[in-house]
Design a binder for these strands. Structure first.
Lengths: 152, 152
DNA sequence: ACTGATAGTTTGCCTGACGCGAACAAATGG
DNA sequence: CCATTTGTTCGCGTCAGGCAAACTATCAGT
């Protein structure tokens, strides 16, 4: 399909992707635990993710992102408020709008799902030597730089 | 809290974890897309994940894993069969049991959610040089070895 | 000050996914 | 031949989401 440059690169990339996939499978179990024990709905999770990304949004904005009506959103937010995952606050510039944002518990929950496997990875790294960690740190730095240059 | 060995290790680990978290945030968007557009329920996702892990299981086994009754499971599997995500097959050893397994489409869906960001990572790696890729390949090999030794 | 538009809530109503127990058919294994 | 196990069907209930319509409060323009 594609070996534009050197032939060794394709093999290296394949090796790296295989390893990455194995790591994903490992932390998938950690991710599933808080997700399934939270008794959240996928729609509710979507709301929490949107709030985690955008911070504080108005109801109409959120309804627009979700593609649902304002009436439906009211009920969904109500249920999340009862669970203390989001909170409504008055907008200082417009007293009609009620800004919706994550509570501390909501942020923690989303964090525990998204950054799953953090504990596992940490104990895993702690078993390696300083030299090995240095190598890994260089590698991650390379990846992050490449990611940032492509996002910009 | 913990700096048992050399002080440099703690800093290296912190750097690596920070980079890892940034990468997780990036592929989170890729993961959310197939998840939310699939119109799955969290319970349905749980079933698909269990089937992906265990391969083919009987109804009673699956109901036991989920903590629900057999009657409930029948309906849930029915809905997944309609979506062509799982299929029922006869067990050659016991004609009472109908073994439940993922279909090709079900495997693809789970794969697209679990191995999210694969395409993004691949194009990202393709921009790096062979030397940089070699470094990353060494790093991932180290991590995988550490993970395997801890799992064993 | 009036008036039209906008934000959010409430109400009533519907659909679909899950959950159960009970009853049942089919197959197993004594 | 009979108790057990597996899975399905049936009837029933609950809850999350979805809408339209009516309503209140507020804003913004004239």
């Amino acid at each position: 399909m594609a070996d534009e440059s050197s032939p060794g690169k394709a093999r290296l990339i394949a090796d790296i992707m295989g390893a990455q996939k194995r790591l994903q499978d490992l932390i998938a179990e950690d991710r599933a635990d808080p997700l399934f024990s939270s008794h959240l709905t996928l729609s509710q999770l979507k709301i929490l993710m949107l709030l985690a990304r955008h911070g504080s949004v108005s109801g109409s904005e959120l309804a627009g992102m979700l593609g649902i009506g304002a009436a439906t959103l009211t009920g969904m937010i109500d249920r999340l408020v009862v669970q203390d995952l989001v909170a409504r606050a008055e907008d200082p510039h417009d007293r009609r709008v009620r800004r919706i944002a994550l509570t501390r518990a909501g942020r923690d929950l989303i964090g525990s799902i998204f950054n799953a496997g953090e504990a596992r990875m940490r104990t895993l790294l702690s078993r390696l030597s300083a030299e090995e960690l240095d190598l890994i740190a260089q590698a991650t730095t390379l990846i992050i730089k490449a990611a940032e240059s492509s996002e910009a």
